[in-house]
Structure formats: structure tokens, C-alpha cells
């Protein structure tokens, strides 16, 4: 499978990158790790005439201390996972990043690329010839969303592991364009539309992601996938909470891969606030979170079961945040020994 032709440009600064992007924003695409864009190009899902390679911009690959951490969009997932500040203070983000794809793909893929990951769908992530066999779909070259043929919008699935967790950690993103920079909460970066799933303008570059200090918070990420590696999430729960003893002072629950964007489970959170985190409350919050999940028949696993699994994933995350020993359960689901996190190291207290 060959890449289609393109013009390749390699800026050394983000200013150059923004300026070059502004020249032809509609036909240019940014290349970071390449693990999302290049397969899409080989399958002719995305066919930019110009690729702007960001790997030469050193500033994008840094993690800086501040009020919390500012993570350059070009930091590879491997480097993120290797950073002790992430592991000790943002356990959920560590868990999310460490479960993306495979070791090789984490060596290549960046946090910015994972946040901006193209939405996925088994009607869309196919070769050109395959898509021709179904007369294409709404997201590229066609008219209909085959997932739900009466749907006016594309139902491709947000399949990023890190974005739900970053949203639960109340992260913000900095977008840079030739006209300047703007900062917005990461929740506002996403829209619930499989085609237009980012509010990023075509001339903007995601430069960095800032996570606040979050003293006293704990976080956890639970992912559903078929195998211990390779697979995108087909449902996930990103939970961050601040507890006073067992009482929930503050919390955020964000669901991944059950919608075209990371989905905030506000009603489940409302149940938790001010309450003791009992087994019953955890079960109830899990059920409330699952109610808003809208899995469609366009990923691995049956959609009804995926919806049920949301409840189990949210519950598991809450148990882990409460300090329960979830290592056996995590090993069974994630099949990675290294992901087990003793409660004592799971977050700053």
C-alpha cells in the first residue's frame, strides 16, 4: 500500500509551521507521529496535498513544570509514560497513555496526535476499494452514515485514550495559528460530530496541553479492548476525584469511545458529590454514567454489551480511586502486569 503523493515541509519553529499552514489550510495537514495520518492516507481517507512535519520543532516535545504540567503536543506517548511526574501525580493519564496501541506506536505517536486522533468507524477505516463497495460514507466521499442511515451527522467514534482522561483532569489546550494563540478547556476542543469532531480551526496547531496541579486528586483510567495491545478503546472510563476520607469532595467522570467526543457524565458525578463512596454509590454512579453512553455498531464488540461495560469500567475506576486493590481485576482486563497501581502511589493525596 503506497502513500499518495504530497509535498513535505519541515518547519523548525512553531511560528513557521503556523505560517505555512496558513498558506493552504484546507489542503495541508500536520504530521506528528504519523501513526494516525499515514494509515489514513494509505487508505485514501485523508489526502492532503501538503504535509507539515512537526517532528523538527523541539519546543513541542517538552514537558514543563508550572502550575501543574504543560505537556508539549509533540511529546511521544512513550516519553509521557516514562516521565515520573505523570506516573506519580496523574496516574490516570499514565494508565491511559500506557495503554495506547503498542510499544512501537507509543514510541512514534504523540500526545497531541492522540488527542486529535481521527474518529474511527468500521465503515470508514477501510481501503478505498472497500469503501467504494459500500458507495462510501458521509465522512469521506459519500452521503450516508451507514451506522445509522437516517442520522444527519456522522457517528464515527472518538477513540482516543488520553483525551477523556485529560478532560477529567480539567486540562486546557493551547492552539497556535499565524494570528496568535488561544487557550481553551480541552472539553471545548471536541464536538459531538464524527466529521467535525475538533473545534480546532484548520490553520491552528495544537501546541500544548496543560494539566492543573490537582492537589489531593486521584485519577484512574479503565479501558475496554479485545486484546492486551494494538486495539483502540471501544469504551473507557476516565475518572478523577478528590476525596476527604471516603467522602467525595469533587469529581469528574468522562467516557471514551461511546460517542463522537469524550463524554462528560455529569449526572453520575452529581450523585457522588458530598457522598460517602460506598459500594452502592459506586454501582449507582456507574449505572448513571452508562445511561449517557451511546455506543454504535461501528467498533469491535456488540454495542449493547459495550454499554453495559461502561458501568463496570466506571465502577472499577471509582473503586481504584477509593483505594481498593484492583490489581487482579486490572490485570484480567488490561492483561498488563505493569498497569497495576498500588493505591499508595496512585495519586498525590
Amino acid at each position: 500500500m503506497r502513500l499518495p503523493g504530497f509535498r513535505y515541509r519541515a518547519p523548525r519553529t512553531i511560528e513557521d509551521a503556523a505560517a505555512w499552514l496558513a498558506e493552504q489550510p484546507a489542503d495541508s495537514m500536520l504530521l506528528a507521529g504519523g501513526t494516525d495520518l499515514l494509515p489514513n492516507m494509505k487508505r485514501r481517507q485523508q489526502t492532503p496535498s501538503t504535509i507539515i512535519g512537526l517532528s523538527g520543532i523541539g519546543a513541542l516535545a517538552e514537558i514543563r513544570n508550572g502550575d501543574g504540567l504543560t505537556i508539549g503536543a509533540g511529546v511521544t506517548l512513550s516519553n509521557l509514560v516514562a516521565d515520573p511526574r505523570i506516573r506519580t501525580s496523574y496516574a490516570g493519564l499514565w494508565q491511559a497513555a500506557a495503554q495506547v496501541a503498542t510499544p512501537h506506536l507509543r514510541n512514534m505517536g504523540t500526545i497531541g496526535g492522540n488527542v486529535c486522533l481521527d474518529t474511527r468507524c468500521t465503515y470508514y477505516d477501510q481501503n478505498y476499494e472497500w469503501r467504494k463497495s459500500i458507495d462510501f460514507c458521509m465522512k469521506r466521499d459519500g452521503k450516508t452514515c451507514w451506522v445509522a442511515t437516517s442520522s444527519p451527522k456522522c457517528l464515527a467514534v472518538s477513540s482516543t485514550d488520553t483525551a477523556p482522561m485529560l478532560q477529567a483532569l480539567d486540562a486546557s489546550v493551547t492552539l497556535v495559528s499565524a494570528g496568535g494563540a488561544r487557550v481553551l478547556p480541552i472539553a471545548d476542543l471536541f464536538a459531538n460530530d464524527g466529521m467535525h469532531y475538533l473545534t480546532r480551526q484548520r490553520d491552528e496547531i495544537l501546541a500544548s496541553i496543560a494539566v492543573p496541579a490537582l492537589d489531593g486528586w486521584r485519577s484512574a483510567y479503565w479501558k475496554l479492548r479485545r486484546r492486551g495491545a494494538f486495539d483502540f478503546p471501544v469504551a473507557s472510563a476516565a475518572v478523577a476525584a478528590r476525596l476527604d476520607g471516603r467522602r467525595v469532595v469533587d469529581a469528574r467522570i468522562v467516557l471514551g469511545a461511546v460517542s463522537s467526543r469524550p463524554l462528560s457524565a455529569d449526572r453520575a458525578v452529581a450523585q457522588l458529590l458530598g457522598q460517602e463512596l460506598t459500594d452502592d454509590l459506586i454501582a449507582s454512579a456507574g449505572a448513571a454514567a452508562a445511561e449517557i453512553a451511546k455506543p454504535m455498531d461501528n467498533t469491535d464488540f456488540e454495542l449493547v454489551w459495550r454499554k453495559k461495560m461502561v458501568r463496570a469500567l466506571v465502577s472499577a475506576a471509582l473503586h481504584e480511586i477509593r483505594g481498593d486493590d484492583m490489581r487482579a481485576r486490572r490485570l484480567q482486563l488490561a492483561r498488563q502486569e505493569m498497569l497495576s497501581m498500588p493505591a499508595s502511589t496512585s495519586a498525590a493525596r
Binding site: 479485545r226 495491545a229 494494538f230 486495539d231
Partner: peptide, 16 residues
């Protein structure tokens, strides 16, 4: 059509 003629979606067990 074949639902997922790819190594990603045709699930083959990994070392884990």
C-alpha cells in the same frame, strides 16, 4: 462486504 479485512480488527492474540 467483509466487515474488517485488516489486522487491527481481525483479532489475533498478542503476547499479552
Amino acid at each position: 462486504v467483509h466487515k474488517f479485512p485488516s489486522m487491527l480488527e481481525y483479532k489475533s492474540p498478542t503476547s499479552l
